[in-house]
Design a protein around this nucleic acid. Structure first.
Length: 567
RNA sequence: GUCCCCGUAGUUCAACGGAUAGAAUAGGACCCUUCUAAGGUCUAGAUCGAGGUUCGAUUCCUCGCGGGGACACCA
């Protein structure tokens, strides 16, 4: 990765110029409040990435005239070393140039002290072959060093089918797992089923099943209940558990067949935690460690000693355990299974639970990394059109049927998890026709059609012929993929992926416009075919990270044709 | 009352403290004899308000205003 090379180069140059090669000391002296603990506690992932890159930051300037990469390093250390940023930059510039003259077209110093790097055409040309060698592995990294990582997501209550809110968790979890895997983590996708027979939720579901209540009653559940042959004398807990199992089977089928999401592990609260006595053992463990106490007939956990605002009940006065206790047991189980990194994806309504879990994991003495991503809620606007029920939630399945999986995934992924997402079904439908995903897929289809026509076997690495600005821009854009994967694996900002994909498609479309691939010039044709192949590789890899298909043909061709005829 | 998330073009969204705040879509003007025009080029359009920190703030801090969520012996 060029970015890594640049970081090392600037570091070496700084040492040669007898400048500090890290920002830490200067930064910490100047900016103690900036990375205050509260914020770090909330954003551990960002903190981690910040820490990893604390030394020197290399940017991709938005403006092309500012170079391919740039660094503000000189500006950052100027105050600490009491030299003007421009002077520092000049020192660094000459050292860097003498260290790696081949890498750069030029290095510019710009007010107030930016160093802008322009990568040489030769270096870029040589990268094309590297991309093709790596193929579907292009962009993959060893950032994670096979660290055992657990990504738990969706974990919807088994009281009904998935709704559009669950879609956010589904797609973000799935794609995050893809990204982490690509970044070299050993990822397990996990789904937790809240099906404990002693839980109020399941008991209530049981009542619904036995016709004694209707808290969870829906059209869907009515049909489900009818389809099961209920034995008499079933307890409410047993009935609820049975019904939950039925619901869960549907959810699993939906996920695998329609959403193309496969979980590695399904954890049943009832079977894997309660029946294996893990909840009980966890309580015993807490008692032993003196982390719980009795008050007002209930058992409380000392979470306030581990950063939470207050203590919470883990065993009710009635003797029943709370959700918190089983969740502590669950996390203990994850830790015991050897995960070095644990990622939970929860809805915003679980916000308050974050502190509890962080405290709990602290009590358990976990040495790894726990990140809890809190997704803001998805709400509806104009939902009644699509809902099969009166005035109720919209099923995820209906949305997918309506706009298609690719458009749905793209639609969800484009939004930061922190922002409140309002789905206007009418708008989503309308926008699905103009979804940028088609723009991206079209680029892929174009590539395929060129390759089909040209017989790609003729492609040869005659890279020095690739000198057109649009060609070089395309190569630069391709080389961005590993950076995108690295950044996203570090900060979990998944929207970076669709935006990168659109950018990549755009650069390709421009190239397509500017550079005729198949032409009389046979050598140039071969060289360009080679480039097109590598573009296909990067594009396909990007799409597959998002779980979006990479079509060979553009499905809307006929639509377009009729449109043209009309005008 | 306390805590969390958000407030950016008409609209849906971007922007690790960086340079002229980007896309898409809607609007205006162009480009098919060419590998698929679901494409390309040009144009117009935005940071909720007031302070502060900084060489530099959409981003960090404080206070307002507005929207959403959470404050259980529910999950």
């Amino acid at each position: 990765m060029i970015r890594d090379e640049l970081i090392q180069l600037v570091e070496r140059a700084a040492r040669q110029a007898r400048l500090p090669a890290r920002l830490d000391s200067a930064r910490q002296a100047r900016l103690p409040a900036r990375l205050d603990s509260a914020r770090q506690a909330r954003l551990p992932a960002r903190q981690a990435s910040f820490g990893a890159r604390e030394e020197i930051r290399i940017d991709r300037p938005a403006e092309e005239s500012h170079g391919d990469y740039s660094t503000n390093f000189a500006l950052q250390i100027a105050k600490a070393v009491k030299i003007s940023p421009q002077q520092i930059a000049a020192h660094l510039q000459s050292h860097i140039l003498s260290l790696r003259p081949d890498l750069f077209e030029k290095i510019e110093i710009v007010e107030p002290g930016f160093i802008n790097f322009f990568i040489s055409a030769k270096y870029l040309q040589n990268q094309v072959a590297t991309i093709l060698e790596k193929k579907e592995k292009f962009g993959h990294l060893n950032l994670g060093r096979s660290k055992k990582t657990n990504v738990e997501f969706i974990s919807a209550n088994p009281t009904g089918p998935l709704h559009v809110g669950n879609g956010r968790s589904a797609f973000s979890g799935d794609v995050l797992a893809n990204v982490l895997a690509a970044a070299g983590y050993k990822v397990v996708r996990e789904y937790f089923i809240n099906d404990a027979k002693n839980s109020k939720q399941i008991i209530e579901l049981g009542k619904t099943a036995l016709g004694k209540g209707e808290v969870y009653l829906s059209e869907y559940l009515k049909l489900k209940i009818q389809s099961v042959r209920w034995r008499t004398k079933l307890t409410e807990g047993d009935a609820g558990f049975l019904l939950a199992k039925e619901v869960q089977a549907d959810t699993k089928a939906l996920l695998e067949k329609k959403l193309k999401i496969k979980f590695d592990k399904w954890i049943s609260e009832e079977k894997d935690l309660y029946q294996k006595n893990k909840v009980k053992k966890t309580l015993e463990w807490l008692k032993q460690k003196n982390l719980v106490y009795q008050k007002e007939g209930a058992w409380w956990v000392k979470s306030s000693q581990f950063g939470d605002d207050k203590d919470w009940v883990v065993i009710r006065e009635s003797g029943e355990p709370t959700y918190l206790l089983s969740d502590i047991a669950y996390h203990k189980d994850k830790i015991d299974r050897g995960f070095e990194m644990i990622i939970d994806i929860w809805g915003a309504d679980h916000q308050a639970h974050v502190q509890k879990m962080k405290a709990a994991v602290g009590m358990l003495g976990y040495q790894g990394q726990l990140d809890i991503l809190v997704l803001q809620l998805v709400t509806l606007k104009g939902g009644e059109k699509l809902s099969k029920r009166k005035g109720q939630v919209i099923m995820l399945e209906d949305l997918i049927d309506e706009i298609g999986l690719d458009a749905a995934r793209f639609f969800y992924l484009q939004k930061s998890l922190d922002t409140h997402m309002e789905i206007d079904i009418g708008l989503a439908k309308e926008q699905s026709q103009k979804n940028p995903v088609y723009y991206v897929q079209y680029a892929h289809a174009r590539i395929c059609s060129i390759l089909a026509k040209a017989n790609a076997k003729n492609a040869k690495p005659l890279h020095d012929l690739l000198n057109h600005p649009s060609e070089l821009r395309l190569i630069k854009q391709l080389l961005k993929l590993p950076e995108v994967i690295e950044d996203t694996a570090n900060d979990y900002q998944l929207q970076r992926l669709p935006y990168y994909a659109v950018e990549l498609a755009m650069v390709f479309h421009q190239f397509y416009q500017d550079c005729q691939v198949i032409s009389e010039d046979k050598k140039l044709t071969q060289a360009r075919l080679f480039l097109v192949l590598s573009a296909k590789t990067a594009l396909k890899n990007t799409l597959s990270l998002m779980g979006v298909s990479a079509p060979r043909l553009c499905p809307g061709k006929n639509v377009a044709a009729t449109l043209i005829k009309k005008t």
